[in-house]
Nucleic acid binder design. Structure first.
Lengths: 359, 359
DNA sequence: ATCATATGTTGCAGACAACAACAAACCTCG
DNA sequence: CGAGGTTTGTTGTTGTCTGCAACATATGAT
């Protein structure tokens, strides 16, 4: 005898149990039995198994107040599996080491000088202990390569390979908006959303879609390059009338707080910009909503400030370009994880890969 | 002893084997061993198992010309599992009974008088022997209900329940465009496409997206209600400037052959319409492409004729509204299954459900 | 204190897939 | 035409897995 026969099942069940705890927090064995649809004895075997390997910790004898033998509570050990998450922006790098169960164990942030190589900076942040490493970055990401990122100025860059070369380990690459959508769904308060659209305002505008908890296969939505004004302003991407160009993102959005403040103080140009931007954004959104049919939209990055200060034109422009039936199911909100969403979501993506690999 | 212990594995493997044969056609046992990653003996057990239950037929002793014992070829028995597929249009009903492996066993078509109830007509077509029943219809379909269909004039109709009441069996409901996309992917020649966007021209314009062979979760794209001209013509849906309204679908598209013919004979109005329609379509497509990033687009329904007769304006408008990086990977074509796509795809969706249910 | 209830634990049985050895059926080459 | 090589199906064995049932344990209720 040499290798596993029907060990596959055990592996699958182990992964399922771990994932259940990771996503839903500590649970009793009884609850796990219910959730996984397995027998008490099987859960017992799996749990002691995983406790022996250090992934789980069981705290016994929790009296619940109701009749019957008290159930043992089982929780994951965060340190037993960790995931490195990095968010790359044009001007800075953010890092988090996230443990099983979702706890953030370490965190750091480093400024990135203009022109500096992000890869070596990443290598300085991450250690090799993590079970998975995920990098989130703004742009059109497809299977480890960034096809196009106005924000980072990268075109067809094989980022996963570059990161691997710099750090000596495998990397997964996702786009910031999709990562943030995943994060808000998994650890924010958007878990009820069936189709969650996350809008991310950085130097560019991107959007990410999470459907029933799963990132939409195949990368992000280049929201900034929806054409809202055919034949309009010239955009860096070579088109005309892109949302990014029409909004004059570079001029106003980079310092959105100052712009909203100025508008509040009666600055006509700032006011005008806010109104026009809101309308343009709403129109672009209309097309995206019609194309994807979300039931919740989150305004992240500096779009958060834009939306909070000027929701009315966004809503009305959206109303003029979206089917009533799609609009009626739509909630517009701002994210609860703030700037952390992408980092959290990237880590969550890593854990998904870890669980998949276990099976 | 009463019920299955670890029978789950066997069921999974049985389903996997059947699905493999259904999708890839007859294969030898050796090929199945390779494809499923199971042991020869396991494949043998599964095959005889399924042959005994009548799902498979093994033809032995096929000499391949190369050395070694000739492998037994195993193929599905179409009659052993069948799926009813129905395509509902405003004016007619199409039905197909499709067998395991994809063979169409029966087919029929009935005209639907204006105002007639489609449900009872469906009941007249389908018999109760099929393992699954799927209905494709144009519009915004979500979990058995049609939220909105300009073509059928239905709003928030619980079609699955209605069909169930009329026929006494469970129904799955999908939208025509998505079904056609699935069909072209599974049985057409679009299997290489990673993201396949199928545009369907009926009385309305819808689109369906298939990503790596799987229908995008959550229904179709209301292509006809992308706003291409803010503040433009009034549309039935209540918005202004929708693609459907701007294209004047009702006036010209319903009889597209006559329009293209007239344009060919020098009719200025028809020519104008073709050019303007192509441009509007291209612009709407630009938004959808930016939002979904497909690598192949198929023009189905009457959009097929429109595209074949007037591709240039479509392409140039698309070029003006799509990121170069998305455009460069894009192939534009017409479907190979013609009008059958939606029916085939609906059946394929049904088989997917059947296989899922087996596990 | 006793009973009811809910939960962990243990031993057992049925099932399953991998493995290895063997049998079968083909090809090639002398 | 027969021997050797090659590929594939078959069979018996083995280790592992999960469900089940009976038992043990720990609580609340009476």
């Amino acid at each position: 005898m040499a290798l596993p026969p029907a060990v596959e099942l055990r592996r699958r069940n182990r992964a399922a149990l771990l994932e259940q705890l990771h996503r839903h927090g500590p649970q009793t064995r009884a609850e796990l039995t219910e959730a996984l649809g397995l027998n008490r004895s099987t859960i017992g075997a799996l749990a002691t198994d995983l406790a022996d390997s250090g992934h789980l910790q069981e705290t016994t004898g929790q009296s619940t107040g109701s009749a019957g033998r008290p159930s043992t509570l089982v929780a994951c050990v965060p340190q037993s599996i960790t995931v490195s998450a990095v968010e790359i922006r044009a001007d800075r790098l953010r890092f988090a080491l996230v443990g099983l169960g979702g706890e953030v164990l370490e965190r750091s942030e480093t400024a990135l000088e203009e022109g500096a190589d992000a890869m070596t900076a990443v290598a300085g942040l991450t250690r090799g202990t993590a079970a998975a490493a995920v990098a989130a970055m703004p742009g059109l990401v497809d299977e480890g390569t960034v096809a196009h990122s106005t924000e980072l100025g990268w075109v067809d860059r094989r980022v996963a390979a570059d990161l691997e070369a710099a750090t000596g380990r495998e990397w997964k690459v996702v786009d910031t908006a999709t990562a943030a959508a995943v994060g808000e769904w998994a650890r924010g308060d958007a878990r009820e959303a069936r189709k969650l659209l996350y809008l991310h305002g950085g130097r560019g505008l991107t959007a990410g879609l999470v459907i029933e908890g799963r990132a939409q296969r195949g990368g992000s939505i280049q929201l900034g390059h929806i054409v809202v004004e055919p034949g309009g302003r010239e955009c860096e991407c070579g088109l005309r009338g892109c949302l990014e160009a029409e909004m004059e993102v570079r001029a106003y959005a980079e310092d959105i707080e100052r712009t909203t403040l100025a508008a509040g103080m009666g600055d006509g140009a700032a006011r005008d910009w806010l109104r026009r931007s809101g309308e343009d954004l709403g129109r672009a959104l209309g097309a995206v909503v019609t194309a994807t049919g979300p039931d919740e939209i989150l305004f992240g990055g500096w779009l958060r400030e834009l939306y909070l200060s000027t929701a009315a034109p966004v809503r009305s422009a959206l109303a003029e370009t979206t089917l009533p039936h799609l609009r009626s199911k739509l909630r517009l909100r701002t994210p609860v994880l703030g700037d952390e969403g992408a980092l959290i979501g990237a880590a969550e993506t890593g854990f998904e890969a870890v669980f998949d690999r276990m099976r």
